[in-house]
Design a protein around this nucleic acid. Structure first.
Lengths: 332, 332
DNA sequence: GTCAGGTTTTGGACCGGTCCAAGGAACAGG
DNA sequence: CCTGTTCCTTGGACCGGTCCAAAACCTGAC
């Protein structure tokens, strides 16, 4: 009835439990005939190693915790995919948790991971309270992926190069002939970088930039766009801090009777599935989520192998994804 | 250097490790002064129980595995939320895995959970291979949430009542005065139920129903809509099998010069965040994801407490969410 | 036939908890 | 003061693996 243990296997194969353990861990110090006997017994009994026992004695779990900022934001999906394959080939499994789901309980979101004894931690996106990460990072190899907030010492940060991505947008709009452009800005470190890159590149090209703050929602984008487009001397192009906000701009434009891209060009950021909807077909910036995930995994693996050192910053090159919401300005 | 164990705490508090264990498990058989001494020692040493050791000796992990069909489909987010709170109050943690991420390796997706020794399993959405669930379900209390495929014996199924939801749509369109309506159908058990409920309710009201097959993507919805709306005698309303498909219908309508809802009413299903975008503002059916998750959690908890029995089917009542894409037909 | 040297195999300690039977303390009644 | 209870504590076995030092087994050489 009870699942078989290594000792049951040993008895069946007529060897000691130590030998079974050796075989299961792939030692080459075992005579082939014994190995076969053990493997046969394993098969016959349907033996599965007990992960709890193993991690108890090995003092590691072969598991890394992945703390997601918010499952509702789908931009991280690609990142997870990139994270998964290097970890998997290294024999590590991923364990996901949503920082928001746990928050209600008042606990520090990474705590379950600490209790579970994961070997490492990947934080995806911006945490509600980045400072809370420090005590965890002291005990656990930690990598932050997709956020740019200042990280505790010894933590690697991997992210897309938001400043460069925003410059791509400015260059694209300038090349189309836009002279008067707006940026709908957000809060947080990532948004600040996007704004900075965009403003710098636009100014270098002598463009007029007006910045309007918003939160990172569709609603916020809509409100900001209404303010922006209702004023005299309205811009011919808008760069929104993310795709969600850009969708808000699109709906505001529609309500104001502006056709996109004829009367107004709109650019988002993140290349979420939203932007790929043919109904929206939003020009946006792809921030190389897969690449970010891949490099975050490599960073973590490095640290797990003992190569510690100070936290480094890795940036992946973003790419402009030109779709249907940008074109030359009306006056050009 | 090493994290403190229960024995370190015992030594510090001047008691035996057994007493520490009693205190930590909240026994009332302990004299208050000893309890305080133990708790103080725990605090001073920063002791955290070792989950691996605990599950090894308790023979359970206080963890349930949640197997997601596909992280890219966001409809399950609400469901997860509903799942989380009952489990959390029962002292169980959730462990997420994506069936697609692991599939590449050729392994059965629930296997990592088996090795990890989770106490129960929640399968969210339709699995690539439902039959693969049977061997797992024999070993583990299992609940399927949000799918309607036939489940192995002893597995509870919790889902929204898709047939009833689809009836709501038919009633809504009939009440608006539509007489000639179309359904864009999908594959799978859920899609079949939606189609059945819709057709039955429409026929009862003497409506003309034409059904067009599609896959469950935006692209598929678009193509189906083009076929449907290009023919003579086109319907005045379209009920799409899900929101994604409905968005495809919207874009097709736009390209054909049909205004929504003036020339064409469109209804989706799932009430995803997509439908809530004011740019789309899609009339849709909310399938009570939170409720489904909640009831799935209760089912699992019941089974964990030994109340086994045959698998039951629980249906949650869906609700129509009327937004901007439905209205009276032109001819009415 | 014995022995050195290498290869396989094994028993037992250990990882950090839980659990239980038995031991000790305290207190009431005789 | 002794005894029987009740209440609190404790030592030690156990969960199912890993790991290591020592034992057992070979092999070829002398």
């Amino acid at each position: 009835m009870k699942p078989p243990t290594i000792r049951d296997v040993a008895e069946r194969a007529g060897v000691s439990k130590s030998l079974v353990s050796l075989v299961l861990r792939g030692s080459d110090q075992v005579r082939p005939e014994k190995r076969d006997a053990v493997l046969a017994a394993v098969r016959e009994l349907g033996y599965r190693p007990n992960a709890a026992a193993r991690s108890l004695s090995e003092r590691r779990t072969r598991t890394v915790g992945v703390l997601l900022h918010d499952l509702r934001n789908p931009w991280y999906v690609e990142l997870l995919d990139g994270l998964n394959s290097p970890l998997h080939t290294a024999g590590l499994r991923m364990l996901l948790a949503d920082a928001r789901l746990g928050r209600r309980t008042g606990h520090e979101p990474a705590e379950p991971f600490l209790d579970l004894g994961v070997d490492g931690l990947v934080v995806v996106g911006t945490l509600p309270d980045p400072a809370a990460l420090a005590p965890v990072a002291r005990r656990l190899p930690t990598v932050v992926a997709g956020a740019r907030e200042p990280a505790p010492p010894g933590v690697d940060v991997v992210a897309g190069d938001d400043e460069a991505g925003a410059r791509l947008v400015a260059e694209h709009l300038a090349a189309l002939g836009h002279r008067r452009i707006a940026h709908i800005a957000g809060h947080g470190a990532v948004a600040a970088l996007r704004r900075r890159g965009f403003e710098a590149a636009a100014r270098e090209r002598g463009l007029d930039v007006v910045v309007e703050p918003a939160d990172l929602t569709e609603e916020g984008g809509h409100r900001a766009a209404v303010r922006l487009l209702g004023r005299p001397g309205r811009p011919t192009a808008v760069f929104a801090v993310n795709d969600m906000t850009a969708v808000g701009v699109l709906s505001a434009a529609g309500e104001l009777g502006l056709r996109v891209p004829h009367d107004l060009s709109v650019v988002g950021y993140d290349n979420t599935s939203l932007a790929r909807l043919r109904h929206l077909w939003l020009t946006t910036v792809d921030n190389a989520g897969h690449e970010v995930g891949h490099r975050a995994a490599r960073c973590l693996l490095d640290r797990l192998e003992g190569r510690g050192g100070a936290g480094r910053l890795h940036l992946a090159a973003p790419a402009l994804e030109v779709r249907g919401t940008t074109g030359p300005p009306l006056t050009a």
